[in-house]
Design a protein around this nucleic acid. Sequence first.
DNA 1: GTCTATACCTAGATAGAC
DNA 2: GTCTATCTAGGTATAGAC
Lengths: 173, 173
Amino acid sequence: MPSDTKARIQAVARELFVQQGVQNTSLRQISERLGITKPALYYHFSSREDLVRSIVQPMVEDIERFVTTREPGDARELLKDYFDLIWRHREVLVMLMRELETLGYTDMAERMFSWRRRLILLLFGPGVTPEQQIRATMALGGMSDCSVEYAHLPVEEVKPTAVESAAAALGLS
Amino acid sequence: MPSDTKARIQAVARELFVQQGVQNTSLRQISERLGITKPALYYHFSSREDLVRSIVQPMVEDIERFVTTREPGDARELLKDYFDLIWRHREVLVMLMRELETLGYTDMAERMFSWRRRLILLLFGPGVTPEQQIRATMALGGMSDCSVEYAHLPVEEVKPTAVESAAAALGLS
DNA sequence: GTCTATACCTAGATAGAC
DNA sequence: GTCTATCTAGGTATAGAC
């Protein structure tokens, strides 16, 4: 085992970032909790931003894959799978959305908008109306909110109702 | 006119806070844009927190008034009025939600939860089921998202569809 | 691969002159 | 009511020993 320190840093950082926000977490705090020193962090991550990025990356790639490879199809099925997607990453997603502005280190905001656009396209096709866009925002945004607000519950107690409600918001029969 | 400086400070601060986040806005930046010095700010506001609070306060009071004085009644009417409420304060609301964690200076998070609970109570009464709670989150959260995402459009182009969709998400006939 | 020590910056905040 | 000057705390980051 060459070094699991890197992984341990990520685990602790992730926990603190989610718990108290990225901006409110200092490298000192992370290193202290691990029993190592600040400079030791810099051996594994070239900068604070590098560390943050490494934690966000898996989620970004997963969502990116979803919105780019998905073929148009049954809307309700898409809602279900999309719910699973955001549920899986709900902790990091919350962290990210809460600090979108303060995390200027990427083009995250623009990226998330493009995900949303792509999803709407998948739901309604290219001839989407303004009304359908609003309904899509209601449905997709509402599901995100549910993933956050009921994050502590088992999925089965949230997903069915959330998906059903989202379908209704969309205007599906 | 004894001093409109205070108001000018608030106007500039508000703009910067909304634009780039509270955490990313320093007192130096605010004072520079106004052509005054940092210490001058401290004459009008006893601390940075005091300034932030003064900008959030009007929204807090408005929402507080809504959720405490409102009588139970027609759900769709409530959705409409609630939409107007958050639409009116959408800029500050976004700012606040984006930085809930980083703004540890108040009990904001808890407060917003209690608003949500009170609204759900108004919508479904005391015997609310878990399913209805999820649907309420979908409806109310979705409307917030719409206020943010379509903030630049005229209300009339957003509100009717958003309210209609929220009603459907709630499960109203 | 991890430490000690430290440089350097920027932030919020205060003292006291005008 | 606003200024100059300054303090202090905390952050990121680096140099170099072990």
